[in-house]
Design a protein around this nucleic acid. Sequence first.
DNA 1: GATTGTATAATTGTATACGAAAATAAAATT
DNA 2: AATTTTATTTTCGTATACAATTATACAATC
Lengths: 221, 221
Amino acid sequence: MVLYKYSEELAGSALPLSNNLYSMLQRDILTNKLKEGEKLTEQRLCDEYEVSRTPVREALRQLEINGLVENIPNRGSFVVGMSEQDVKDIFDLRKINEVQAVRWAIQRITEEEMTALEETFEFMEFYTMKNDIKKMININRGFHQIISTACHNRMLEHMIDSYQMYTRYVGEEKPKPDDYLQVLLEEHRRIFQAFTEKDEEAGAKAMEEHIANCKLRQCGE
Amino acid sequence: MVLYKYSEELAGSALPLSNNLYSMLQRDILTNKLKEGEKLTEQRLCDEYEVSRTPVREALRQLEINGLVENIPNRGSFVVGMSEQDVKDIFDLRKINEVQAVRWAIQRITEEEMTALEETFEFMEFYTMKNDIKKMININRGFHQIISTACHNRMLEHMIDSYQMYTRYVGEEKPKPDDYLQVLLEEHRRIFQAFTEKDEEAGAKAMEEHIANCKLRQCGE
DNA sequence: GATTGTATAATTGTATACGAAAATAAAATT
DNA sequence: AATTTTATTTTCGTATACAATTATACAATC
């Protein structure tokens, strides 16, 4: 079942998530194709994305909820976007919440979830060996996804899932050092090991360092 | 300016936020008027809320983002709703994040924000004296709002603001003990005092206990 | 009787139409 | 020339229309 999931992505194109208008606009804002402060005229989006106003408006309202767009009544929608500071701040946020998630997950993980986590980690080892960064990025998401599910706090899971997207495209085309995947793998190994040993403190520490490192790698300094 | 804000609410009706369709549906899901699993046919919502399908669809898509509604393509929208466990979980989430917010806020609060916080706290004292629960609930929101702003982490502020709504209607018509406002005021006094003394640890502790108490008061046990 | 196939109705997804508000351009006034 | 006023255009907010999909009802078959 987990195997199926990754082989599906493996078979499919490089593009991970659905390409509905909402995701596309999200991507284009986060990758700065649509710039901070820019006005998003509905008709313009209709033309550029080749859809009618109804789906455009629906997407804009969704973007408004997660703060990527600001809507001023009767005046229009404006890109809010994310500053470099915002991105750093989100890594700090993710750190707090995902550290807590690991703690709860280690306490509450089911056998089935543990199997999935194990399988996923093995995939990570495999694709590190193959040096396939693209696959690793997808599997990495899966790894964290399993943890956020395993903490059995539906709202924390929801929060982690929705905040993950803000940092999704950060440092995407930044050149990676040769040992990038090895380092990433070792960070995940420490997290995974904390699960096998049911060591909450070790898990919390490993996750905290992992996200701190992600922040360093992707934001620099 | 802060004064204006509250006097505006004072003059206005009891209903705090805007009564657009999104807020109304949100309220009706969270107060269980629309029940878990219930299908939300667009036409039915048009009839019941007396609007056309366009705003209905926009609202449904927004509710989907914050997880109150699930949308299955070509089949429709279904109420997800919140279990009692979810509500408890959210208080735990809020605890983690608002404790962190207090820490950062104590470090980073501006003079202007400090003045606003002071003013707000004085309003709390005033309405506790007047024993006006409705006003206190609004001002309470304002108090926490100022803190989430003062932490100067735009994304944490956004998170706190959006998660606040999940517990907004919880225990609303539950009878309150006689000393309810006094107790609430004292909890806030401890938080406020931590700000005046710039004591991060005291602030964190006060906020943690405050939210734990909110959970106790509103969820019981 | 249960199951499959077909016709009908209901519902969603998208496009378009129209009134209202705002932005812009042009004309009139100081 | 600068400012105000008016007219025009653009854009938003909402309603409605139509095609595509799904659900339902009913008949036919096993």
